[in-house]
């Protein structure tokens, strides 16, 4: 396990923890750990997807009707916002590799702004639902859809969007740390960008989940 290929050039690298064989292995471990964590996130949402699939299977009419009561325009805007925020997060990794710390910060600020935009739009969607009464379970009082299974749709809707929104908030916290580090410390470079990479991977997962939630909820 030679360490000859560890440090190309003079770029300062991150600290090698004592128990790893080399920096490469350390980074590999960090990535693998992140992928495992993302796998747990995927399975977390899988439980909700299973609820969704089962009840969609049982109540197709209520599902279609309830889905049409959602605001597709807002949903589409939110999807575009989240995909774009994912793009800026990917660009942050790109700039981190080039050592352009300012740009990393800018990209993450854009991502965070779009995340806030996403949550604001979501808030207005929620507010509308509280107003007209398309609410989960026994709180449902919407007269427009009187089909068995409709309250259940909104249980699934609120459970999955709320869990997703929670992940948006967690992702924002993670990215905020990297943003501050990029502006204040500015030590990201071709050899040292694991924090940016892992944070942006988490953000892509948030995007990935929404990519599936959007057609499931809005386009049945």
């Amino acid at each position: 396990m030679s360490s000859a290929h560890v440090t190309p050039g003079t770029v300062p690298g991150p600290k090698l923890a004592a128990h790893f064989a080399s920096l490469e292995v350390q980074k590999h471990a960090a990535r693998l750990g992140m992928w495992l964590f993302l796998a747990t996130e995927i399975l977390l949402f899988a439980g909700l997807f299973a609820c969704y699939a089962s009840y969609r299977f049982l109540f197709p009419e209520a599902w279609a009707a309830s889905s049409r009561s959602l605001d597709l325009t807002m949903g589409t805007i939110n999807t575009v916002v989240l995909i774009t925020s994912s793009f800026t997060a990917a660009m942050a990794v790109h700039y981190a590799k080039e050592g352009k710390n300012k740009m990393v910060g800018h990209m993450f600020v854009l991502t965070l702004l779009m995340a806030i935009g996403f949550l604001v739009i979501k808030f207005f969607e929620y507010k509308h639902k509280f107003h007209i009464g398309t609410l989960p379970g026994r709180y449902y009082f919407y007269e427009g859809i009187q089909l068995p299974g409709a309250p259940l749709y909104f249980t699934v809707y609120f459970a999955s969007t709320a869990l997703h929104a929670l992940h948006v908030v967690i992702g924002m916290t993670v990215l905020a740390f990297s943003t501050v580090r990029a502006y204040r410390v500015g030590d990201f470079n071709a050899n040292n960008y694991t924090a940016v990479e892992l944070g942006s991977m988490y953000w892509h997962l948030v995007d990935l989940v929404w990519i599936f939630l959007f057609p499931m909820l809005y386009l049945v």
Binding site: C51, A62, P136, G137, R138, P151, L152, T155, A159
Partner: peptide, 8 residues
């Protein structure tokens, strides 16, 4: 009401 029979 996710698993409530009364609501489907």
């Amino acid at each position: 009401g996710m698993f409530d029979v009364a609501r489907g």
